[in-house]
């Protein structure tokens, strides 16, 4: 059973539909007790980092997620869920959950021809192998919509990058936590592959 964390930050239903399509049992929950004791967690989200962080704090989901992380629960972060696991986000200048040291940084000064947000399909280059990236091949593309990107302090936590003017991290991980900046749930068969890999990930 995968628990999808509901903190009023968009697109939970597309994640649920992807899991349903793959035949993977799942539930959506905003209850910190359920999240704390979940077997496996997907932490999705679209929207604004500071708003998302405030909702997490007010609901007690912030400490529930931290506890789940420290007790070894497999967690997959998606989009905002890949950004606020860092120590800090420039979007709304907010502290994050600090599960992976680093900051979430705005795309800027990358040349006038680059449009922000970075929106559309982009290829992902795997820089370190990881069970969740199994069967993802060079040149495979994922769907992105974002203006900020994760920049971990420890470069060994970066597993994949994409290129937008210059390379930037798109998949980061530490221990039982893995997170992707792109929307795996909207990235066709390749994205479903990644979600399936997460469902079968044994740490």
């Amino acid at each position: 059973m995968i628990t999808i964390v509901d903190y009023k930050a968009g697109n939970l239903t597309s994640v649920r539909r992807a899991l349903d399509h793959l035949g993977i049992p799942n539930q959506i929950s905003s209850d910190p007790r359920i999240v704390r004791n979940a077997k496996r967690i997907i932490f999705p989200g679209v929207g604004h980092a500071a708003t998302a962080m405030r909702v997490l704090q007010e609901s007690g989901l912030d400490s529930a997620l931290k506890e789940a992380f420290y007790r070894g629960t497999p967690i997959l972060g998606i989009c905002i869920g890949c950004q606020i696991i860092l120590s800090h986000s420039e979007e709304g200048d907010t502290p994050g959950l600090d599960l992976i040291p680093g900051v979430c940084t705005h795309f800027q000064d990358r040349g006038a021809s680059l449009k922000i947000p970075h929106m559309g399909w982009n290829a992902v280059a795997i820089t370190q192998s990881h069970p969740i990236l199994r069967n993802i091949l060079p040149g495979d593309e994922f769907y992105f919509v974002h203006s900020y990107y994760p920049q971990p302090t420890d470069l060994t936590t970066i597993y994949a990058t994409s290129d937008y003017g210059e390379p930037f991290p798109v998949a980061i991980g530490s221990k039982n936590l893995f997170a992707v900046q792109f929307h795996a749930e909207k990235s066709g068969a390749i994205g479903l592959q990644l979600i399936k890999n997460f469902a079968g990930w044994n740490i």
């Binding site: 199994r134 069967n135 593309e141 066709g188 068969a189 390749i190 479903l192 592959q193 399936k196 890999n197």
Partner: peptide
């Protein structure tokens, strides 16, 4: 342009 693999998952 994006090239795709169709419907089948690679490890299915």
């Amino acid at each position: 342009v994006r090239m795709t693999i169709g419907e089948d998952l690679r490890n299915s």
